[in-house]
Amino acid sequence: MLSTGALRAHLLAARLAGPVATSREESLRSYRLFAARDPRVLIGIDPEWTWGQRDLIGLMADKCGVSSDPRHTQGHDVIDPERTLAALDAFADRVGAAAQRRVPVLLGTGHPHRLLGFYAALADALSAAGCTVLTPAHGRCVDITTRFGLRTYNLDYVRGVALVRDPAASSPGCATGAHSHSPLPVRVALAAAAEQGGLLPELVIGDHGWVCGAGQLGFEAIGLADTDDPALFVGEAEGVVSVVVPLDDAVRSDYYRPLTRYVLNRACLSQ
Rank of each mutant, 00 (worst) to 15 (best):
L33K: 15
H181A: 12
L259Q: 09
A162H: 02
G209T: 01
L203A: 06
T146P: 02
L11S: 09
L150S: 07
G239K: 01
L107R: 06
I79H: 09
G218M: 04
H10T: 03
G198S: 10
H113L: 13
R140S: 07
G5H: 11
Y31V: 08
L7K: 05
L199Q: 14
I57D: 06
A267M: 08
L232H: 06
A162E: 02
S68A: 14
A120F: 07
G108C: 02
T22P: 01
H72P: 00
L106I: 01
L199K: 11
P19M: 09
V161N: 06
H72G: 02
T84N: 05
A168Q: 15
R54T: 11
R29N: 10
A17I: 03
P246Q: 10
G58A: 12
I45G: 05
R54I: 13
L247R: 14
C141Q: 15
Y119T: 01
R37H: 08
G5S: 12
S3K: 05
R159V: 01
R8G: 04
L264V: 06
Y256S: 05
P81N: 04
R54N: 15
R140G: 02
R147G: 13
D249A: 13
Q74Y: 09
H138A: 13
F118T: 08
H113G: 13
C212K: 02
G215P: 14
L33I: 00
R102H: 02
F91C: 04
A17K: 01
P167I: 09
D228N: 15
Y256F: 13
R40M: 02
Y256I: 07
D249E: 15
A137R: 04
D254R: 15
L203V: 08
T132I: 09
Q74S: 15
G58K: 04
G58F: 08
L116S: 05
L56V: 11
D249H: 08
D156V: 00
A35Q: 00
L7P: 14
Q100H: 10
I144A: 07
T227V: 14
Q100R: 15
Y153H: 10
A36H: 08
E26T: 04
F91Y: 14
L85M: 12
L116G: 04
R114A: 14
G239E: 05
F34L: 12
F148P: 04
F91L: 06
G130F: 12
A225S: 14
V41T: 10
W51R: 02
T145K: 14
A97N: 07
A214I: 00
T50H: 14
T176F: 10
F34E: 03
D254K: 12
A121Y: 05
R159D: 11
T132G: 01
E26W: 13
P167R: 08
G235D: 09
G108Q: 06
I205T: 03
A267D: 07
N154P: 00
A225Q: 11
R102Y: 03
L122F: 13
Y31R: 05
V142I: 07
E238F: 02
V20D: 04
G173K: 12
T4P: 06
A137N: 01
R37C: 06
G209D: 08
G108I: 00
W51Q: 04
R94K: 13
L33E: 13
L56R: 08
S253F: 12
P104D: 11
D229E: 14
C141P: 14
D46P: 00
G197C: 02
V103M: 05
L126V: 11
A121T: 09
R140M: 03
V133I: 09
R261P: 00
R15E: 10
P185N: 06
D38T: 08
L126C: 09
R83E: 10
A97F: 06
R29P: 00
